[in-house]
Amino acid sequence: MASQSSSSHNRDHSRSRRSSPPPAGPSLSTQPTHHGNGTSTYQQRNPWLPTRTELVLLAVFPSLLLFGALFSFISPETRSVSHDPVSAAYPPHLAPSYFARKDNLLNVLFVKRGWAWITVSLFAWVFTSPAYSPPPRVVGLVTAGGGLRPGAVIRWLMVTGWWVLVTQWCFGPAIVDRGFRWTGGRCEAAQDRLALVIEEGEVSVKEVFTAAACRASGGKWRGGHDISGHVFLLVLGSVFLLQEVGWATALWAGWLKEERCVVMPDGAVKSASVEAMPTEGWDGPAPPSASKALGWGGKLAGAVVVLGVWMMLMTAIYFHTWFEKLTGLLFAAAGLYATYILPRGIPALRRVVGLPGI
């Protein structure tokens, strides 16, 4: 009798434990969710951090910088030829590679005009992609699809503004030029030439404090920390296009499930899919093939990203010091974080900026 009573008590206790709800935990979780078939899927529950897919893609850029630094140190060709550490220019006849010359075609036609290529790619993508211009479908009284474009334009304005502040103009000299002077850099020109330029009013004293004016006066930047504008531009532009084209295409064509999480106005953390366009009433065709999903605008953006990654590798091998390249990477990361990660945690900002593909 005692044994049967004990056994019954254990079964009741076991059923009680199975039926009781799990203890309340924090709303943010990065633990895998296990399914009945024994598989598990990673669920990103922190809106303030990149998703797993984003981390994999972002890891490419510091990896390129690390590889380039190791290659330039190990390679006899790069170690045997000295170059100007500020202008990063090799003598043309001694350059260890065609891409180590600043007059190589990709540098002249692509990198020097990098933001124009990025801008053309973005607008070609937005106005030709089926993800932004799907076959007409009506949800209630709203035609879905067109509402994605304003957010893409606003995000382009944000990253463009950051590019201008860092490399072109920041209420005077750009951040790159200001940083160079704040770290002890100056324009070294022939003193008589520099004095003549200022005296004759060809440029003002303030303008001489920029890299462009220094070069125009026949001088060279010397002595300071030169944030790598190439790394900054190539990382900022490449990740910008990857975010815009990648999320919209992957979600539209069904290649990737939504990994992003957002903070709702009531403080709850939910999947970003709760803010996606509704799909009820869809009368259009099935999601397009890979080629049709990208469209020619997406393919152009993909080509720009590939060229950007290649020139990033060339910059990592042949130009600037490792610390200058690292600061270029960090400045690009700051602008990208403000544009793509910060809105996930701030509902008011997200209502203005939006998220790619949503």
Rank of each mutant, 00 (worst) to 15 (best):
S16Q: 13
R18E: 13
S20R: 15
A24C: 09
P26T: 14
S27M: 13
L28H: 12
S29D: 07
H35Y: 15
H35C: 09
T41W: 11
L49Q: 09
T51H: 00
E54P: 08
V56S: 06
V56Y: 10
A59Y: 05
V60C: 08
F61E: 00
P62D: 00
S63A: 14
L64S: 00
S75H: 08
S80A: 15
H83S: 13
D84F: 06
D84L: 06
V86C: 09
A88Q: 08
A89G: 08
H93P: 07
H93F: 11
P96F: 00
A100N: 01
L106F: 07
K112H: 11
R113M: 13
G114W: 11
I118A: 08
I118L: 12
F127L: 11
F127W: 09
S129K: 03
P134S: 04
P135Q: 14
V139I: 08
G145A: 01
G146R: 13
W162P: 02
V164M: 10
V166C: 07
C170R: 07
G172M: 05
D177P: 01
G184A: 05
G184M: 01
E188W: 11
A189N: 04
S204W: 03
S204P: 03
S204R: 04
K206T: 13
A211N: 15
A212F: 11
G218E: 01
G219S: 06
G224N: 06
I227N: 06
S228T: 03
S228E: 02
L234T: 00
V239I: 11
F240R: 02
L241S: 00
Q243C: 10
G246K: 00
A248H: 08
A250S: 11
L256Q: 08
P265Q: 04
A268R: 13
S273A: 14
E275A: 14
E280V: 10
P285R: 07
P287G: 02
S289G: 14
A290M: 13
A293P: 00
G295R: 04
G295P: 01
G298I: 03
K299Y: 14
V306Q: 00
M311K: 06
M312I: 07
M312N: 09
L313H: 05
A316Q: 02
A316C: 03
I317K: 00
F319Y: 10
E324Y: 01
E324T: 04
L326F: 08
A332W: 06
A333N: 08
A334M: 12
A338W: 12
T339R: 02
I346Q: 10
A348N: 10
V352S: 09
V353K: 03
L355N: 02
